[in-house]
Design a protein around this nucleic acid. Structure first.
Lengths: 248, 248
DNA sequence: TTTTGCCGATTGTTCAACAATCCAGCGATT
DNA sequence: AATCGCTGGATTGTTGAACAATCGGCAAAA
């Protein structure tokens, strides 16, 4: 928790200098191009949520950890009410759970949750791949597969993990559905929450690479039924793997 | 908007008597049994969100309408901050959209949104029915079908609509997945938002009844593939119907 | 040992203030 | 007459401070 303040200090939020009034102007002055581009400056509450999300994804704030409003408000240099709004957002994303009158805690997924998450993934991903998608969307899937191959060749473990996420993101993107994509990214966030330690298993993603290639080929050849079946099998296997390392 | 205050006054929130401090105690004293039963009293923010959700579903607050923080805070006798928290919740449910610095507005679905909603439904419902489900869950589907038949016989239009919703809820319940169920109920809330006027079309649900029966039979007989195909066809047709009355 | 009752800490909620932002209207300019 | 720029009023975004309600733990009592 010590890193917190420094981390945002440099990017967005103020540290400890009274009221944080003019930061939008400062950022705009220092980086006017970016300021002009995204003309919608995220609200402070959103930025707090972003920061917390980041710490959650990185495994700072382990599951079960308690998040005290006043502490976080102080560390991030914002008001307690604002932290509260950020908590509301994170709660709706299931990254954090609220125990009434006791506080919010980092969500921790049990075995049923893992199964449930995969149930959602099966529903979404299989449905998306069954739809086929535009040639460009299919190309994006192929691109993610190649990215994975390169990472494997370079022995880049983290890159492999990212490529795998891109792959599944591209699968969902086949459906061209904002809502499905939103759901998927939430689900992935939940998984990161529970598995960020597991991602350090070296030969872990290795087997997936072949499966991804197979799925991609089936998709490209228009054999959607086969692609769907392969993807389903992949997800089942992945669930087993995750359940194994999680239960242990 | 005039009904607002009275509506909650009688149930949950206070009216206009200074600080709303002791209401929890009052309610508890006046109805101690209930207080002991549901030991988790929903927070004020949640109650505000509930009330707004209700008005949204009932078609009070038409799509596009603006929700001013101060106005609602006054009407419901709560603080602006609390209203704000309720807004955050509704925003995460897509029932309401936030235009930064301009306020929140009742969401209004365009043609793409309708299509998107159905894309999600196809993914979830088809996946759920493909899984089969326990005998009890199947029985629940059957029960919803029968409910629909009774409503049709009694010429109960609203009952027919409810039965239809129960039917699809039961379909999703087949998957026994809290997350899928949550997603589905949000999607249904979105649809209510856009279609509450359309539900007064009399012969509207009529055709669906037969489809539901067919799907249910296929499900009961274990022919999941056929059930899934029928359900998919149903959803496609339903989307067309909705798009028609929406576009017109 | 179990229960009771109290204490400190934290949450839930309110209120009041103020800067930032947007919108509508209005006048000035072309 | 149409456009531009300005200004004022209204609303949002955020803060800080206050206080009751509630929870968990701990010590005293049974």
């Amino acid at each position: 928790m010590a890193r917190t303040e420094a981390a945002i200090e440099g990017t967005y939020l103020r540290g400890e200098n009274g009221r944080g009034d003019k930061i939008a102007g400062q950022v705009g002055a220092r980086n006017s191009a970016a300021a002009r581009l995204r003309l919608a400056v995220p609200s402070v509450a959103e930025r707090v949520a972003d920061e917390l999300r980041l710490q959650l994804a990185e495994g700072q704030l382990p599951p079960g950890a308690r998040l005290t409003e006043s502490t976080i408000a102080e560390e991030l240099g914002v008001s307690r009410n604002t932290v509260r709004e950020a908590f509301a957002e994170l709660t709706s994303e299931r990254l954090v759970v609220r125990h009434p009158n006791r506080g919010v805690f980092v969500a921790s997924l049990g075995a049923e949750d893992i199964h449930d998450v995969y149930t959602v993934r099966r529903a979404i991903e299989v449905s998306a791949i069954r739809g086929g998608g535009t040639p460009e969307a299919v190309a994006a899937v192929r691109s993610a597969v190649e990215e994975g191959k390169r990472a494997a060749a370079a022995d880049d473990e983290e890159g492999l993990g990212n490529a795998n996420q891109h792959f599944h993101g591209a699968i969902v993107a086949l459906a061209d559905s904002p809502r499905l994509q939103a759901i998927m990214s939430q689900i992935l966030a939940e998984m990161r929450l529970a598995f960020h330690k597991a991602s350090s298993d070296a030969p872990f993603y290795g087997g997936y690479l072949i499966a991804n290639e197979e799925i991609c080929v089936a998709l490209e050849s228009g054999d959607l039924d086969r692609a769907a079946k392969l993807l389903l099998a992949y997800l089942d296997r992945s669930e087993e793997d995750q359940a194994a390392i999680h239960g242990a």
